[in-house]
């Protein structure tokens, strides 16, 4: 049996989530948590802690220095925000293909990263946008770069008694472009077989975020100033950089296909990121 508990403040939520006598799970959009909930909570007294009514929670905050995505911000909220769309194209493209319209009306960005699926759509984008994850606990707050947040499939550095309260994105330096590409088995609603986010930063850094090719989403740096338009230059750079990808074979694809596709999508995402830079400048 499952007990439903509606937390009214962060501290209240932390107290329940930290209890050792119950199996407490944080509930945001519920689009992952509620699939097969009964089966998973079968052996423990389960508590579902609903975080959608926290009095001290700030939703989407846009400031000069960047954007703060509070824990109840849905994919739909994110996609609808014009500043987010202008500053973080890769993230908006990724958030826009998470599930269906009805899923995006419920699924949250914070929930998506805390679920820590290797195939998470938003994680590769958040990686290249340099996101930081704000984690609260009874002892206070800590901030973790998202590149250090994911530990293993379904496991993050956010432990028992802790709660992710926001994802914070620095404002991109002028001249930055980004894009998201993914491969699916059909054109409508699907999970990613492989996904890649690319950012060409205004300061010359070039980064790739990779999804579904390793136990956790990966962040890869390409040498600054790599000529992305020249395949003869780019291809060996990608070969070296993408060696970190260690995809598995499963019902969705074989490992060698994923390996080839991450390279193909990386090249496409980099090109699209470069194009978005040019659009911004124009």
């Amino acid at each position: 049996m499952v007990t439903y508990y509606k937390a009214h403040a962060v501290a209240d939520a932390l107290e329940v989530l930290g209890r050792k006598d119950v199996d407490a799970r944080a509930l945001l959009g519920g689009t992952d948590l509620l699939v097969g909930l009964d089966d998973r909570l079968d052996s423990a007294p389960g508590v579902v802690v609903d975080l959608k009514g926290l009095a001290d929670e700030t939703p989407l905050a846009v400031e000069d220095s960047g954007v703060r995505i509070g824990l109840t911000v849905t994919m739909a909220d994110l996609v609808a925000n014009p500043t987010v769309a202008a500053w973080y194209p890769a993230l908006v493209q990724a958030a826009g293909v998470v599930g269906s319209v009805a899923i995006r009306n419920r699924a949250t960005v914070v929930g998506n990263i805390c679920n820590a699926s290797p195939a998470s759509d938003t994680a590769p984008a958040l990686l290249v946008h340099g996101a930081n994850v704000r984690i609260a606990s009874a002892d206070g707050e800590r901030v973790v770069p998202i590149s250090e947040f994911f530990v293993a499939p379904r496991v993050t550095t956010c432990g028992r008694g802790e709660l992710v309260t926001a994802v914070e994105l620095p404002r991109p330096v002028p001249g930055t472009g980004s894009a998201f590409q993914r491969l699916t088995r059909r054109w409508g609603v699907d999970l990613a077989t492989v996904s890649v986010a690319a950012a060409v930063h205004g300061d010359g850094r070039i980064q790739l975020g990779l999804g579904a090719v390793a136990p956790t989403p990966l962040l890869v740096d390409l040498p600054a100033g790599t000529d992305l338009a020249d395949r003869a230059v780019l291809d060996p750079v990608l070969d070296e950089a993408l060696a970190v990808a260690t995809p598995i074979s499963d019902i969705r694809a074989a490992a060698d296909y994923r390996t080839a596709m991450v390279r193909e999508l990386a090249a496409r995402a980099l090109q699209a990121a470069l194009d978005s830079t040019r659009r911004t400048q124009a």
């Binding site: 689009t31 699939v35 609903d50 269906s100 009805a102 899923i103 419920r106």
Partner: peptide, 21 residues
């Protein structure tokens, strides 16, 4: 999508919402 309803004016899958919510 067979269970789609409107919650506060937004389409949602009612199988992925707890009644308590």
């Amino acid at each position: 999508g067979a269970c789609t309803v409107m919650l506060d004016g937004h389409a949602v899958n009612s199988c992925l919402v707890l009644a308590a919510e």
